[in-house]
């Protein structure tokens, strides 16, 4: 049975049993290599649901607000973000049905030769080299928070990638060189806030950049405030960000956010031995107080 019929069958059953009132998944987009998120509320619509290697959107963002019995198709990145949402009390686990999928990694359209696209239904027709960078470093260990699982188990056959390799390259630069690099990157920013809007853990009711009283950050699009905004956003999600890479993917001016986010992740890992997106019961180190915290002064 191919993965699409497996998915559709399972969701159909969930609707029939009354386990869920709506389901968040993907449907085919207007281009062969595009998919888009869709929300299904009737069992008759399940044949719209698909899963392939272009299902890159992080669906957890649609879990915000007051949910009523919602099912969600969760690839690796979505699953990790749900962990972060559970940690921040943003979803009620009792209202959530997670259908996890053994995620083979998503294809980066910038890398793949999409003109020669096969009319595929089977997964993994694309070579490893065409995957997103984040997928190349993926460990494929799904956090055990799902109710059901579809898809064949992924055997990590590819060569292991040091997920921090590009961070280590950055660290070799001098402070000046790094600052010049980021100055250039942030000067491109048009303050469209796509990175913020797509981020699953940017769930503040009123964002710091929108606040007027007091005004934390100027709304002017100029280099100093752009730097302030971008750095502030990265620090804001530090220790909670699960590196789904959506901010970098949606950025219209291609600011390499993962270079900042992975650096923060590495710092947190080295300081506290904590990797986000694994266990909802373990709270992020910056939101907890533990006896063995390195800061002796706050005991």
């Amino acid at each position: 049975m191919d993965i699409n019929s497996e998915l559709q069958k399972k969701v159909y059953k969930l609707f029939e049993e009354g386990t869920i009132k709506r389901f968040i998944g993907y449907e085919k987009g207007s281009l062969p290599y595009k998919t888009r998120p869709c929300i299904i509320t009737k069992k008759e619509d399940v044949n719209r649901l698909i899963f392939d290697q272009f299902c890159v959107n992080n669906l957890s963002i649609y879990l915000r607000g007051d949910l009523e019995k919602t099912g969600i198709l969760a690839n690796m990145c979505t699953l990790k973000s749900i962990v972060a949402l559970l940690q921040g009390n943003q979803v009620k686990p009792e209202n959530l049905y997670i259908l996890a999928v053994n995620c083979p990694g998503m294809v980066d359209p910038d890398k793949a030769e999409l003109s020669s696209l096969p009319a595929q239904t089977k997964l993994m027709p694309f070579g490893y080299k065409n995957l997103y960078d984040k997928c190349k470093a993926c460990h494929h260990e799904l956090p055990k928070i799902y109710q059901d699982l579809i898809g064949e188990e992924i055997s990590v056959a590819c060569e292991p990638v040091d997920e921090y390799a590009f961070i280590k390259d950055m660290e070799k630069l001098t402070q000046d060189e790094r600052w010049k690099f980021w100055e250039k990157q942030f000067s491109k920013c048009i303050r469209c806030y796509a990175c913020r809007n797509v981020c699953p853990i940017c769930y503040c009711k009123e964002c710091m950049v929108d606040k007027a009283n007091p005004q934390w950050v100027s709304k002017l699009n100029q280099s100093s405030t752009n730097e302030y905004y971008n750095l502030m956003r990265v620090i804001h999600v530090m220790g909670r960000c699960t590196d789904c890479g959506e901010c970098e993917r949606v950025c219209p001016v291609k600011i390499p956010y993962r270079k900042l986010i992975k650096k923060m992740e590495k710092e947190i890992k080295e300081l506290y031995g904590y990797v986000p997106g694994k266990d909802p019961k373990e709270l992020p180190p910056l939101s907890t107080f533990k006896e063995e915290d390195p800061e002796k002064g706050i005991k």
Binding site: N89, Q90, C204, K205, L283, S287, T288, F289, I298
Partner: peptide, 15 residues
């Protein structure tokens, strides 16, 4: 409370 998201970071961290 109008903008509190209820993440309860504060609860976990309050000495």
């Amino acid at each position: 409370t109008s903008i509190c998201t209820g993440c309860l970071n504060c609860k976990n961290i309050c000495p």
